[in-house]
Simulated assay, not measured.
Amino acid sequence: MQLRSMFAQNYRSLRSIRMDLWDTTLFLGENGVGKSNLYRALQLVQAAVAGRLVHELAIEGGMLSVLWSGTRREAEGPARVRFEVEVLDEERAITFRYRVEVGLRPPKAAAGFPLEPQVKAEELVVDHGRRPVTMMKRAGPAISVRDASGRMRQYPDQALTSETAIALLGDAGHFPEVAAFRRVVANWRFFHGFRTDRFSPLRQPCLAVTGPMLDEDGANMAAVFATLVHTREDTVDLDRIVAAALGGARLVVPLPGETAEFGLSFPDFPNRVFQARELSDGQLRFLGLAAALLSYRLPPLVALNEPEASLHPDMLPPLADMIAEASKTSQIWIVTHSTQLAEAVRERCGVRPRKVVRENGATWIEGMRLTGVIAGESDDED
């Protein structure tokens, strides 16, 4: 199932932006233009599916912090943050469209806290190619859902303003379309750098539990490497890329006992294995990206926010090689301000970087029409 388009409105610098997406989507922009808000908007859709959307917005400072602060027209109605995604199930030729809107509590309302983000509306539509069918619709606390007979009915429970209907219905276990959409979005992975301080999870041994894919904080990185080395027994791509990026280094992964560990062996010190706690920040971050992009099983979507951070320029071509390899089986979303990385990804994946700019205070994509299509984009796959 592939993410085909996204829409965000009134979220931070995203005034109103809709865009079509590809197998590999590459955003390039200077600091401060709001490109990370694109990444975060998609991450918040996943939070809605998990039932954590209001919590995540509260962490950002609540509605007064996340709402678009520029000029608004009176005809637009109440100020709300709105997110939409369109996901295509290619095998079954089914398109899922999900929308969620969050706003402030009305001044005289009794439910909820005064400045708490509140879920106002949601909708999940399924399109089988004949006509779109609404599977779930939420307005305020009331939820309507399509039952097995195809009729819309009121769901017996009402949603709190802090809850999403998509999470409530998914947990109920009676709505297969909702469950299918939740399952694919829940498996998206977002990697926004990795901690590299002395207490970083990447520097610690982890439990010896098979790791098919990397956790977002990288805490199971040693288990991911151990799974590749001792379960799949195929590390050709991993070994080649580690050697290219880290001066001929070799990844050393002993058979796990109670914990899984790893280290690096360098040509200048052939009899010494440098443990994770001894590695530089750049070395450790590159290995985190390697675990994310070359794991035993890749998620349906991998989103990388400024993956070039702390990496030496010589590491960027091997990073682009990993991105190209991962793009064969996963959808890749990259946000970067490195023209070198963008060019390397373009060469390997055949995708044109989408330049993120500011127009009248709002984040926009250079050359993009209001429909979300970018002029000349059909020429990308030459």
Rank of each mutant, 00 (worst) to 15 (best):
G170Y: 11
F113M: 10
K137P: 01
E122R: 11
R189Q: 07
A148F: 13
D215I: 08
M152P: 00
S200D: 04
D147A: 08
A110H: 08
D197C: 04
S144P: 01
G170C: 06
L160P: 00
E163L: 04
P201D: 09
D217T: 15
R105C: 02
A142Y: 00
A208N: 10
E123Q: 15
H174R: 10
H192R: 13
Q204S: 09
L214V: 12
R189F: 02
K120M: 12
G193H: 06
Q118S: 12
F113W: 09
A139E: 13
P201M: 14
M135R: 15
P106Y: 03
K137G: 05
R203A: 03
T161D: 12
V133K: 08
A142W: 00
V209G: 01
V224R: 13
W188F: 15
E216C: 01
G103D: 07
R183C: 06
R146F: 01
A142D: 14
R189G: 01
K108D: 11
S144M: 10
S149E: 11
D215E: 15
F191C: 04
P117H: 14
R183P: 01
H192Y: 06
D171K: 15
G218W: 07
P114C: 02
I166K: 04
M152F: 03
F181E: 15
V185W: 09
R189K: 13
T164Q: 06
A219E: 15
D171Y: 08
M221Q: 15
I166S: 06
L160Y: 03
P117N: 14
H174W: 10
A179G: 11
F191G: 03
P106A: 03
V145S: 07
M135Y: 09
E163H: 03
A159F: 02
M213H: 14
R189Y: 02
Q204V: 10
R183T: 09
E123I: 11
R99H: 07
R153S: 08
P156H: 05
A111V: 12
P114E: 07
G150Q: 14
F225A: 09
Q118C: 12
I143M: 09
P117F: 08
S149T: 15
L104W: 00
A172F: 01
D217Y: 02
K120P: 01
G211Q: 11
M152D: 07
V126T: 10
Q158T: 12
R189H: 04
F225S: 04
R105W: 03
F191Q: 11
G112F: 01
R189L: 04
S149D: 09
Q154P: 00
A180C: 05
G193Q: 08
H174P: 00
V224F: 01
I143L: 12
A148T: 13
V133G: 02
D127N: 15
A219Y: 06
Y98Q: 05
R203V: 09
